[in-house]
Nucleic acid binder design. Structure first.
Lengths: 300, 300
DNA sequence: ATATTGTCTTTTATCGTGAAAAAACATTTT
DNA sequence: AAAATGTTTTTTCACGATAAAAGACAATAT
């Protein structure tokens, strides 16, 4: 086996959802743009849709014949990219205890366990290394540095530095910048979510990421923008792991965001600084509280 | 061909230099530690040294028979790791003009041109991507962002933020910390180099890196420490590229470093801040002046 | 003329494979 | 018994090969 066709399967599923909305599908290039895949993949999708009687396809006519049934969809797990599969496996091992700092990481073992080739694991580890949780020994194995208290403190130190600067840059943006519209929309989303917090509290983490990314983008600095990937990754798994008090935490965070948004809109640097600091401080507390104090990380 | 034995060749060459100094070589594990390679490699080295009549080897007796001749050494170019070879080729292309921002990077073409496998090129690009000069399009090619003025400004913005903070952390270090000894030694090296600047000005870049890394380490933050890799890489190639006024630039930098060192030793945060800012400002000017103003980078 | 489809070529993603290098284990020497 | 040497096993590194996916080019329809 050389390469899975998850791109095709994932795009196929997304295309099925499009079928509900229209009587006929657009042109191949347009569909490609819509689904974010090449025409080659679009044509594979159309072929299968024709075969399974979902559409009638004759050149530019792609008429929808019937609504998609659950059986038409590819199973969810077949639509993930290898990188996602590896990342999930790896993070599960990392967070599911027994992952002591200093422990060595074995590419071959990981590859066998996940059932993929070593090349993919190697590439994953190289990509993952920028998160600062693992480190390579020259022509030898990788070493786990561990998701420790020190890691969380170092991470949040940079985050605070970057976000304070980005927020300051944000208020200096011209009145007609598109960010103010984005900010207004995010404010509405925050209010809506806040109103239905009991039912939808688990939708917060996605909104949180979009909000902070908007602010970081104002820095116009690729290193700051890219660093948010580290934060997003950590918070993504952290949220999955630490469900304690989730609803209440998110409720507090929404309120802090609203104050932060109001400060940004006031364009008062002092207010922004204060609101930003306050929110980041509680975000740090949340993260730290999820890390067991216990054992100190190994030196060296 | 599967894997080059550059580790062995490089270690062999380094081991040859050791031969000059002693009548007999130490034990295998000790040699391994000294050369930074495994015993397996040490034994290959010893085997060849025996074959070529450099030593007599019988168990723990490894007597030096003759001094190494130039022919005993492996050629320099065979001692480089593939990663180094690829990086050099890639940077040459990048800096040697014709590398427009927005241009796409072809893995296969790069691999063929350098004469290596695609896997190595892929891994290199992934590792290199953290420098912010290239970016990957999902399931598609890499895009060159270019060594532009914007890049230099974004890089130096972070550098200044990180170094000011590290320098502030530095002065807060306890009196008995080992860094003060390191700082004293670096000061001496600066004075020596300053005295012989005419003959040794090209040795500055290495000293510069050691000095700044010492300061960054005081931050005790892996993200700050790791970020210096980006700066070091850029300055490394920048120095190779831009030889204009090199001697004078380095002379100025040495003086700035000495003032900076004095400020650190005074432990006066205000002085440190001023000296640090001043030096970083001129470092930024130097970097910017080497980037042709010309064409504006494409918006992506 | 321009956008769309049909066909062909190139590139990327991933695997298995084999040599280099590391690491583990067993044996000998001091 | 501790450290070194001898031997075997494992792991990393790098390659070529192959299917998936993208992209380029040619032919056709509005």
């Amino acid at each position: 086996m050389s390469k899975s066709n998850n791109v095709y399967k994932d795009a196929f599923n997304r295309c099925l959802r499009l079928l509900d909305e229209t009587k006929s599908l657009p042109s191949e290039p347009e569909l490609g743009g819509l689904l974010g895949v090449s025409r080659t993949t679009v044509r594979s999708i159309l072929s299968r849709m024709e075969e399974t009687g979902l559409i009638a396809w004759d050149k530019r006519n792609k008429t929808v014949l019937r609504a998609p049934k659950p059986e038409d969809f590819f199973p969810e797990e077949e639509t993930d990219s290898l990188a996602e599969i590896i990342e999930r496996s790896f993070m599960r091992r990392l967070l599911a205890g027994g992952a002591e700092a200093g422990m060595q990481i074995n590419e071959l073992e990981l590859a066998r366990e996940i059932g993929v080739g070593t090349t993919s694991v190697r590439e994953f580890l190289i990509r993952f290394s920028r998160f600062g949780l693992i480190e390579k020994r020259r022509n030898s194995h990788w070493v786990l540095k561990g998701f420790t208290r020190a890691f969380a403190l170092e991470l949040t130190e940079i985050r605070e530095m970057f976000e304070l600067r980005s927020a300051a840059a944000f208020v200096a943006l011209p009145e007609d910048s598109a960010v103010w519209v984005d900010l207004d929309m995010l404010e509405v989303e925050h209010r809506n979510l806040g109103a239905e917090i009991a039912a939808r509290f688990n939708e917060f983490s996605e909104l949180d990421e979009r909000f902070h990314r908007l602010i970081h983008r104002a820095s116009h600095n690729r290193f700051i923008v890219d660093f948010y990937d580290v934060i997003a990754m950590i918070f993504h798994y952290h949220y999955q792991w630490n469900k304690a008090e989730e609803r209440q935490r998110n409720e507090v965070a929404i309120q802090e965001h609203l104050i932060y948004i109001a400060a940004l809109k006031s364009r008062d640097p002092g207010k922004v600084d204060a609101a930003c600091r306050k929110h980041l401080k509680s975000a740090r507390q949340t993260l730290l509280s999820s890390i067991p104090e216990g054992r100190q990380p190994q030196q060296g």
